[in-house]
């Protein structure tokens, strides 16, 4: 039988958190399973919501963009471009909001049983990947039917890898953001209330409804400061022609996220011992 020795003295290290997470990985699995099962529970149309929601959102944005640019069509090719960007954005933003509230939502459980707290951040993201995959396959169907003839489809391994690493990048950025916000708002919750509105604003401050190449000067610099900017830009490069890669933007984004992640983890580890006292 396994027998191990635990010291509880208020000192928490990164190593102890990781080993705890590993030994409790079954909880993560059960949490993901739970989240998948209760998603759209007691609804008749159930899984249809996966697709209807981004389609409606995308249609509205597409309509607005076309109205402003003077075109009179309701749905055109930018629709598909918008769709993939919005699918990624929804994966990122919904999880950022959920992650920031993770400790508050689960406070009942945190106070009653010991679960490594990182699980509360990891489980929602993993379970929302299911929604993401359904939406992604729907996008691919649309994409291939729209672009069957007009684009020479080129899918190299590099593009596939970039696509995968974009998912990982979104996760890391979201993880860092939610760790940061939830850890520093154990006592004062201002940031958690703020983040819902910030996310809405951030949608317009990232190059989703427009591409970076359509901007210049100061506005391009400001939009480039957003660490999420890399994702929609690279998505355009993967799926569509004539997209420019901004290498400096990518390098800046990666460095920002790395530093942000390290800072967030340090804050999280330092604050973890107060969580159950104050939440």
């Amino acid at each position: 039988m396994k027998s191990y020795y635990k010291n509880i003295d208020g000192n928490i290290t990164a190593k102890s958190i990781l080993s705890d997470l590993y030994s409790n990985r079954y909880i993560l699995y059960e949490f993901v399973k739970r989240d998948l099962k209760i998603l759209y529970t007691q609804s008749i149309s159930g899984p249809l919501f996966y697709i209807i929601f981004p389609l409606v959102q995308c249609g509205v944005f597409n309509f607005i963009i076309n109205k402003f640019s003077g075109k009179n069509v309701i749905i055109d090719k930018t629709f598909v471009e918008l769709l993939i960007c919005l699918i990624f954005w929804n994966l990122f933003s919904s999880n950022l909001v959920k992650g920031c509230e993770a400790l508050i939502i689960n406070s009942k459980m945190i106070k009653k049983v010991y679960i490594p707290r990182l699980i509360f951040y990891l489980a929602p993201f993993l379970s929302s990947l299911a929604t993401f995959l359904v939406q992604l396959s729907f996008f691919l169907i649309l994409y291939f039917s729209f672009y069957k003839n007009s684009v020479t489809l080129e899918f190299s391994i590099i593009k596939c890898l970039t696509f995968l690493s974009l998912i990982i990048y979104s996760f890391l950025l979201c993880f860092a953001g939610s760790l940061f916000v939830s850890s520093i708002s154990i006592k004062y919750r201002d940031l958690i209330y703020l983040i819902k509105y910030l996310v809405q604003i951030l949608l317009f401050l990232s190059p989703i409804l427009y591409s970076l190449s359509s901007l210049d000067g100061l506005s391009r610099l400001i939009i480039g400061l957003n660490p999420y900017s890399m994702v929609p830009e690279l998505l355009r490069w993967i799926f569509f022609e004539n997209a420019i890669i901004y290498l400096d933007l990518i390098i800046y984004n990666l460095i920002f996220t790395l530093i942000f992640l390290i800072i967030s983890l340090i804050i999280f580890i330092n604050n973890e011992k107060y969580v159950a006292d104050m939440i």
């Binding site: 191990y4 208020g10 159950a276």
Partner: peptide, 19 residues
């Protein structure tokens, strides 16, 4: 709660052996 590791002590040490 402190023995269960839900809370952490302000001072002092707890050693727990076993699951």
């Amino acid at each position: 709660k402190i023995i269960c590791r839900i809370m952490y002590p302000t001072n002092g040490i707890i050693e727990v052996k076993g699951k």
